[in-house]
């Protein structure tokens, strides 16, 4: 961990502040962008361009009754939404936003990210289970199966990048892309990681644990107030995290022509991915749960393995 001491708390505070606000702002961005793509206005009344909808939403969530259904398993019910926020926030620790702007420059950064994102599955399982509701239970079962399966090739897809960079350290991975961004040699890995990332954040088209038209919000049906808000914020931070990872691993992180500072490049790339996430939500239907699993195990997993082997073979051949 080589971070200049005076900046340390500033960076932690900065990252925490920015991420929580980005998640909140995304509520507005998503609603406006969806509205744009769906030929309607979206929130446009509160404040300029409806920006204050974020404040209105937060106030509403904070002042709702903090209600736990009498049939729920109380401690677990309260714990579940905390897990999702904590695990996602912790993942941001290893993201190199720009040279010097990183909370913890771990040499196992990538593994840390994988470990933390696996934790997210607990929040779904525990939330769905403790709600003691049949819809939530179905959602939780789907969520658990989906996240655990997609975790497998999410990790394997990243190994291509690790092979090329020769490091698990995210800063070094970015540095290794000075010549060529990894999405060109690792195009297959990129696509698979992207798909797994959507599944991991359970966004449409992979929002099967929630499946509004079938399961009525699935695992978080019983949640309200700020506990629901945590799942809500957790989801937006999740897509921000996946976007950051995509940029870091495949699109050269903060790298870019000199006329803009590195952090700006990073933000531009992340925003582009966030838009893609929202556009996906606007355009895709939802596959069935078993189709998703089949797609994962029968198509994506073999492809990931092929990608890994080809990458390894090519690297060996280049070295020899």
């Amino acid at each position: 961990m080589e971070t200049a001491a005076p900046n340390y708390f500033l960076i932690i505070g900065g990252v925490l502040f920015v991420m929580l606000n980005v998640a909140a702002a995304l509520i507005w961005v998503e609603r406006r962008m969806l509205a744009l793509w769906q030929d309607r206005y979206g929130p446009n009344r509160a404040g300029p361009f409806g920006l204050l909808i974020v404040a209105a939403d937060s106030i509403k969530l904070f002042f709702k009754q903090d209600w736990v259904p009498p049939f729920a398993d109380k401690p677990v019910f309260v714990l579940a939404p905390a897990i999702v926020v904590i695990s996602v926030l912790l993942s941001f620790v290893v993201i190199p936003f720009a040279p010097g702007i990183i909370v913890a420059d771990l040499n196992i950064g990538l593994l840390f990210f994988l470990a933390m994102s696996s934790m997210g599955a607990y929040s779904i399982i525990l939330g769905g289970w403790s709600s003691n509701n049949k819809y939530s239970l179905l959602g939780a079962m789907r969520g658990a199966a989906q996240m655990i399966s997609y975790e497998v090739f999410m990790g394997l897809a990243l190994m291509g990048v690790v092979l090329m960079a020769g490091s698990f350290n995210l800063r070094e991975i970015v540095e290794a892309q000075r010549g060529l961004w990894f999405f060109i040699p690792q195009i297959l890995g990129f696509i698979i990681f992207f798909i797994a990332g959507i599944a991991e954040t359970h966004r449409l088209p992979f929002d099967i644990p929630e499946a509004e038209s079938e399961l009525i919000a699935g695992f978080h049906s019983e949640y309200s107030g700020m506990k629901f808000g945590m799942f809500f914020i957790g989801e937006y931070m999740g897509i921000t995290l996946i976007s950051c990872m995509l940029v870091t691993l495949y699109f050269g992180g903060w790298l870019g022509p000199d006329f803009l500072p590195p952090i700006v490049w990073f933000i531009i790339k992340v925003v582009a991915f966030l838009m893609i996430f929202i556009l996906l939500r606007a355009s895709m239907p939802r596959p069935r749960y078993d189709q998703l699993m089949e797609y994962g195990w029968k198509i994506l997993l073999p492809l990931t393995l092929v990608n890994l082997m080809v990458t390894a073979a090519v690297l060996l051949w280049l070295e020899s």
Binding site: Q38, D39, R40, L204, P205, D207, S213, A282, M284, R286
Partner: peptide, 16 residues
């Protein structure tokens, strides 16, 4: 129908 399948947007175009 599209919305039941999870597609969010068509319903807005079609209601228009």
């Amino acid at each position: 129908f599209a919305q039941d399948i999870g597609q969010l947007s068509p319903v807005f175009y079609m209601f228009t």
